[in-house]
Amino acid sequence: MNPSSYLPIVLQTAAALGFVVMVLVLTHLIGPSRKTAAKQENFECGIESTGNARFPVSVKYFLTAILFVLFDVEVIFFYPYAVNMKDMGWEGFWAVLMFVAFFMVGFFYVKKRGALEWER
């Protein structure tokens, strides 16, 4: 591992960022600009929009987000293990099996409590 192997990423960032900004500015400049009040309204299937669009949505989505954070942190722990698995041998395997068991207990608890039921 040497930090200089990350230098091309900086070049890639510059190229990608340059491309995106250039195109966005360019289309803004070369396209026509005839703005009218009706044109700048929101398009909701042709019907006039009512009220603010930032309204409360189903709590299921937030629950999914929170569960993702929990489980993704656990998934991340598997990566260092996967790289060093052959050195850690069976001892490491039993330890990870225990970790997976905890993972699955949490998973089945979430399932049992109906957090993943979308019909209700």
Binding site: S49, N52, F55, Y61, T64, F68
Partner: peptide
């Protein structure tokens, strides 16, 4: 600031994070 857009965006993020696991 469009309800359809917000629905689409929330569905997208919920779907993408679920399948990322």
């Amino acid at each position: 600031n469009n309800k359809y857009s917000l629905y689409g965006a929330i569905r997208a993020s919920s779907q993408m994070i679920s399948y990322e696991l």
